[in-house]
Amino acid sequence: MSYETFRYPGLNLGRAHPEAHDAAETLMFGFWVFMMSDAILFGMVFGTYVIQLDATAGGPGPRDIYDIKSVLIQTMLLLASSFTFGMASLSNKHKGSPPRLLAWLVVTLLLGVGFLVFEVRDFLSMFDMGAVPSRSGFLSAFFDLVPLHGLHVTCACIWLICLVGQIARYGLDTDVKLSVMRLALFWHFLDIIWIAIFSVVYLAGLA
């Protein structure tokens, strides 16, 4: 039985608080279950997208509206933000110092907001081309799937801002630490969803 097997990875609340660790296990497991439920939600939206792929009704199709360079930038921003959140998790776990954690969180937030800015810019240019959701079944499905992910990222960003507020108010207490851990899971999970979007929607759409 090694050190690692006893402890939730990413958590270091000090060894004097086993009860807090128990509560953490429950919280993290609960959040995992929630994410899996969310994954099913995304799965069904992906399914809808795939079966609506050719229902363009004479309107613009994937090749007409996807801007692959912008998408690559979004992908890189999100990937970088996943890494910086990993760094934030490390400071959350090992360094008791709020400034380092705060710095990584703010960097992550900026990357997340940058992603959203590029995404919204893409949507607006699609609208300019007449590719609005009410144009066809395909566009409806596209504007269900990709903005749903964007909405999740927006929620994650709001959560991040609240976390910064909580750190300012309470410092690095147990609740904040647990919150950072859950948000980290959520953030990495959204990155995985983005891999699927990047591959299924954009790469496959342009292949």
Binding site: A39, I40, G43, M44, F46, G47, T48, V50, I51
Partner: peptide, 9 residues
């Protein structure tokens, strides 16, 4: 997820 999505498709 596989059952549901693959079934749907």
């Amino acid at each position: 997820l596989i059952i549901m999505v693959a079934g749907t498709i």
